[in-house]
């Protein structure tokens, strides 16, 4: 059972890696990152469920990962807004020059 769920988690993580690397649009890149965190949450919970004897610190780790997810989203959207204000840029290619 643990192995099966970990394979699902690996598949979601792989899709996330693909999305984060391949997409041009900032928000789509963030979606890739979110999928990777999603896979991480699933893996942590299945390890908590199957291998730790119900130690609540496993669940605590998920709470921390959820906080990380919120931080990623907030900072990501803030940076997208800042970049759009300065450059009117919505895809990574428009940021090749870092000055001006």
């Amino acid at each position: 059972m643990i192995e099966l769920i970990l394979v699902f988690s690996a598949a979601i993580f792989g899709i996330g890696v693909y999305g984060a690397l391949s997409q041009q649009s900032f928000v789509m890149i963030m979606m890739g990152l979110e999928l990777m965190i999603n896979a991480t949450v699933l893996a942590i919970v299945v390890f908590w469920w199957g291998t730790t004897g119900g130690d609540p610190r496993g669940q605590l780790l998920v709470v921390v990962v959820l906080a990380v997810m919120a931080i990623e989203a907030a900072m990501g959207f803030a940076l997208v807004t800042a970049v759009y204000r300065a450059r009117k840029a919505d895809i990574t290619e428009k940021l090749k020059r870092l000055r001006n």
């Binding site: 394979v7 199957g50 004897g53």
Partner: peptide
């Protein structure tokens, strides 16, 4: 590159998941 990275990370993680020997100590 992105496809290769995605498939590669999936294969790596799935192999680890299938090959590794996890302790069985389920939550009560």
């Amino acid at each position: 590159t992105a496809i290769a990275a995605g498939v590669g990370s999936f294969l790596l993680l799935a192999t680890v998941a299938l090959v590794a020997d996890f302790p069985a100590d389920p939550a009560p």
